[in-house]
């Protein structure tokens, strides 16, 4: 048995009356990439946003069941959502850098968590940008606005911003869907590099991407997990007919 970092059991979620996720069970192995695939509206993004409690801001959101991070329920009243999000970072579908300088974007999370030591910030910003394979492109313009970067650079900056706070898990919500193929390749390379240090959960519409980047895959359909397991297994010999239909492009 591998080392499991997140354990989801009997998870049900609702927006108002509509039942989004139905009886979801999923174990996320540590330091590996797990893909969540499925057609639009299948609940995979909701699932992802449940893991760092980003859905909390939606007043009609309701959750039942257990989500354990290192054995501890993340929706317990004594869990500080701010601490949780520090441990579980997120990269969004559209690159969303802040309208601040490149440096301040990466330093943001550190500052928010109380780090104001200039030397230390500089060191960590540089390390994060290097890790996100962006350093060489931006090292001479750290004080320029991040809004001036290309889409692909912005997304790598968002990844750098996320890893700067040293989370344990990084959630990626279709991080390449707004990017061109070359930028996509760069992000995928980056994901390969990062998986040794972080647990990555990525939502993707792109089946090839799932096979390229992830070791494990879960297939969502209508709010349920139809099939889960090793990516190779799911894509080569799926057990469920619906999985086969989906990965061969017969629907979705």
């Amino acid at each position: 048995m591998e080392n499991i970092i997140i354990e989801v059991k009997e998870l049900n979620t609702y927006f108002d009356e509509s039942h989004i996720l139905k009886d979801v069970y999923l174990d996320i192995p540590r330091n590996a990439v797990t893909s969540l695939i499925g057609p639009s509206g299948c609940g995979k993004s909701t699932f992802l946003r449940t893991l760092n409690r980003m859905n909390d801001v939606i007043p009609t959101f309701k959750k039942e069941g257990t989500i354990l991070l290192d054995g501890k329920e993340i929706y317990d009243p004594d869990v500080d959502v701010v601490d949780l999000r520090k441990r579980v970072g997120m990269v969004f579908q559209k690159p969303n850098p802040f309208p601040k300088s490149i440096f301040e974007n990466v330093a943001y999370g550190l500052r928010v968590h109380g780090n104001n030591d200039k030397k230390d910030l500089e060191r960590r910003v540089e390390a994060s940008l290097k890790e996100a394979a962006l350093w060489d492109e931006v090292k001479d313009k750290l004080d320029d606005s991040a809004m001036g970067l290309s889409g692909g650079q912005q997304q790598r900056l968002c990844i750098a911003r996320t890893i700067a706070v040293e989370p344990e898990v990084i959630l990626m919500d279709e991080p390449c869907s707004a990017l061109d193929p070359i930028s996509t390749t760069k992000i995928e390379d980056l994901i390969h590099k990062l998986k040794n240090e972080f647990t990555i959960i990525i939502v993707t519409h792109n089946m090839q991407q799932a096979t390229r980047v992830s070791k494990y895959t879960a297939f969502f359909l209508h709010g349920e997990i139809v099939e889960k397991g090793l990516t190779d297994k799911i894509f080569i010999e799926p057990e469920d007919k619906r999985t086969e239909d989906y990965i061969t492009g017969r629907f979705g």
């Binding site: 520090k86 802040f98 999370g109």
Partner: peptide
């Protein structure tokens, strides 16, 4: 998206408001 980006980094609501 700015607010989500900040919240996802573990910033509190007020930190998000006054810093972003």
């Amino acid at each position: 998206s700015y607010k989500e980006g900040s919240l996802a980094l573990g910033a509190s609501k007020w930190q998000t408001i006054y810093r972003v």
